[in-house]
Amino acid sequence: MTAPLVQAPVRRPSVRAARLATAVALWVWYGLAAVFLFAPIATAIAYSFNEGVAGKQTSAFTGFSWSWYAQAFTDPTVRQATETSLRVAFWAAVIAVVIGTILGFELVRNPSRVVRRLLAGLTYILLIVPETVLGVSLLLFYTQTRIPLSEFTLVAALTPPSISVVAFVVRARMLTLDPSVEDAAADLGASRLATLRLIVLPQLVPAIGAAALIAYTFAFDNVVIANFLSTPVVNVLTVYLYGTLQYGATPAVYATTTIVFLATIVVLAVAATLLRTTLRLRGRIR
């Protein structure tokens, strides 16, 4: 940048002081936000070691104990709910990835402008519709069409929001791909399906991987939709924990969520690495 011609090149000290004061104020504000965000997480971890009173969590720290972790791992209800959660989240992620990838692809490549706009509208609406609306509507739909609530109905219910997230991630990657490569493959005699399988899909793999992990954590962590569609038989971990939290939780609940938190961070760190690989690939292509 060239020095300004009219003004004195050196800033007045008052401006510099004001600038410094602004910077300090900004970072103090930032620190407040960070404390505000981390306080509940730190509290959850700390209080997972709290002895509590009569097996219940208390707001005062009554003593240190490891025992809640042992209980979290051995409690049959928690164990079963965790297994159901892992299974439900897995299938929800698989379906969301397959359908979301197709959607993300068609958002960019569908030859008809009308279809593209229709799909885009649907994807945007899905992203912003409140989960309560989705959960309640699906509950009404299932009960009135006499489809019995099962693990599958829960899996299906968890897919729509995930599909839109997967579609957006895949669409972002699709926008960086050069369509002339696909045209070249077609000119050389490849069928549309072969082009998709051999040219497009391999380039989407990192994006799909990241999207899959995001979809998985969404389905695993979901409370609202699962709350409406779970039954005493199909009980997922979040709904079980949510229920206990309403009527006085044990510190074992805090131990369980702490374990889930650490596992989530690991899974999402993998997702982040995959996404970064995608971005680096994009940089190289451009």
Binding site: A33, A34, L37, F38, A39, P40, I41, T43, A44, Y47, Q57, S59, T217, F220, D221, V223, T238, L241, Y242, L245, A249, V253, Y254, T257, T258, V260, F261, T264, I265, L268
Partner: peptide, 19 residues
């Protein structure tokens, strides 16, 4: 700022019951 966002909703809400 992002890490707390990635934690599950329950862990971020339930601790306020204690705090």
């Amino acid at each position: 700022i992002l890490v707390p966002y990635l934690a599950s909703l329950l862990i971020r809400v339930m601790s306020w019951q204690i705090l």
